[in-house]
Amino acid sequence: MSTDQYVHILDIPFINTTKEQFIAQQVLPALSQNIPLHIVTANPEIVMEAHQNPRYHQIVKEADYVVPDGIGVIMASKLVNNRLSERIPGIELFERMLEIAHDHNKSVYFLGAKEEVVEQAVTNIQYQYPGLDVAGYHHGYIDIHDQAVFDEIQTEEPDFIFVALGFPKQDEWIHHYKGIVGKGILMGVGGSFDVMAGESKRAPKAWIKLNLEWLYRLIKQPSRLIRVLKLPLFLIKVLWGKYIKKG
């Protein structure tokens, strides 16, 4: 892939594409050829963590693809005069991959969240996608080097592995796992299991269309205010980095 298909924000290379183009051009070919892929769905918080954490920064840069999850990343791309095509919410990419797994008879594995949450998420997903091949699931209260979990997943050889351990842990786990296996689309999905389990809800479509999902979540969870307040700092750092480069 040519370098002009990436937009660099605080030294993180975001692929400049749409959700459906990404599925068609990156996911499906890798799936058909059994090529392992590490996909990071990065919002401003993840970019900031990578900016401050050298080890995590390296892991994200070594991922196969970083997609823009968060309107703040789209805003930042405008600031560097290289606008990303569209926001690709991790939950939507997750749901799209579940459809592909169902339609193409591919197996899936779920790792993360509380035991009762991941169990309910899997139950709801199987109801939504009857006949989906669930290779297995495991709660997220593990050490990232837990050999028993590795062995279980390696035995099943799932085509998709969705990891909901929160960042940076989920990408650290994927980075380690990918180094010892030969197949699988691996993606960190944050709180998506909670959504699938019915523990939390996405914003109504009208809010999502207006790029106000962050505001809806803040209204529902006022405790997220501290996280929201990080966005201005993120944008300031992007601007500062832009002017430093010019100088």
Rank of each mutant, 00 (worst) to 15 (best):
40 V>C: 06
54 P>S: 03
189 V>E: 01
142 I>G: 04
116 E>F: 14
170 Q>T: 00
209 K>Q: 10
136 G>M: 01
241 G>Y: 03
34 N>C: 11
122 V>L: 06
67 V>Y: 05
75 M>C: 09
29 P>W: 12
59 I>G: 07
171 D>G: 11
176 H>N: 11
3 T>P: 02
172 E>N: 10
164 A>T: 07
142 I>K: 03
137 Y>E: 06
207 W>Q: 07
180 I>H: 15
111 L>A: 07
36 P>V: 12
32 S>P: 08
125 I>R: 09
185 I>E: 00
83 R>I: 03
48 M>Q: 15
154 Q>W: 10
110 F>A: 04
28 L>K: 14
88 I>W: 01
100 I>D: 03
127 Y>C: 00
179 G>I: 09
14 F>T: 14
3 T>F: 08
203 A>E: 11
225 L>T: 09
129 Y>L: 11
5 Q>L: 00
1 M>Q: 04
101 A>S: 06
114 K>C: 09
86 E>Y: 11
84 L>P: 02
75 M>E: 07
146 D>L: 02
202 R>C: 09
167 F>H: 15
235 L>A: 05
111 L>W: 03
93 L>W: 04
206 A>L: 11
99 E>S: 09
125 I>D: 03
228 V>L: 15
222 P>I: 01
59 I>K: 12
184 G>D: 00
146 D>Y: 06
8 H>G: 08
7 V>W: 04
55 R>K: 15
187 M>E: 05
8 H>I: 11
65 Y>A: 05
71 I>L: 08
242 K>I: 03
165 L>D: 11
237 K>G: 02
202 R>G: 08
46 I>K: 13
213 E>H: 14
58 Q>P: 04
24 A>F: 01
47 V>T: 10
234 F>D: 02
81 N>D: 09
186 L>C: 13
178 K>E: 13
74 I>C: 11
191 G>C: 12
136 G>R: 09
160 F>L: 02
125 I>V: 14
166 G>T: 14
19 K>L: 08
192 S>T: 07
198 G>P: 13
38 H>M: 15
61 K>E: 09
85 S>I: 01
71 I>T: 07
32 S>A: 13
111 L>G: 06
215 L>R: 05
209 K>M: 07
161 I>T: 14
114 K>H: 12
151 D>H: 02
163 V>E: 07
61 K>R: 13
192 S>C: 04
29 P>Y: 10
118 V>D: 10
14 F>N: 12
4 D>V: 10
126 Q>T: 15
8 H>Q: 12
184 G>L: 01
21 Q>I: 04
134 V>F: 05
114 K>S: 10
155 T>G: 01
131 G>V: 10
14 F>K: 15
66 V>D: 02
222 P>L: 00
169 K>L: 12
173 W>Y: 08
76 A>N: 01
127 Y>I: 00
229 L>R: 15
79 L>Y: 01
231 L>Q: 11
105 N>C: 06
167 F>L: 10
198 G>K: 06
165 L>A: 08
13 P>K: 15
188 G>I: 05
220 K>T: 00
53 N>S: 04
8 H>D: 13
140 G>P: 02
34 N>I: 14
44 P>H: 13
93 L>H: 08
224 R>T: 00
81 N>M: 05
189 V>T: 06
88 I>F: 01
193 F>V: 07
160 F>R: 10
235 L>V: 04
64 D>S: 07
16 N>K: 09
197 A>C: 02
90 G>Q: 10
21 Q>H: 01
25 Q>L: 06
17 T>Y: 04
245 K>C: 11
86 E>N: 13
199 E>D: 06
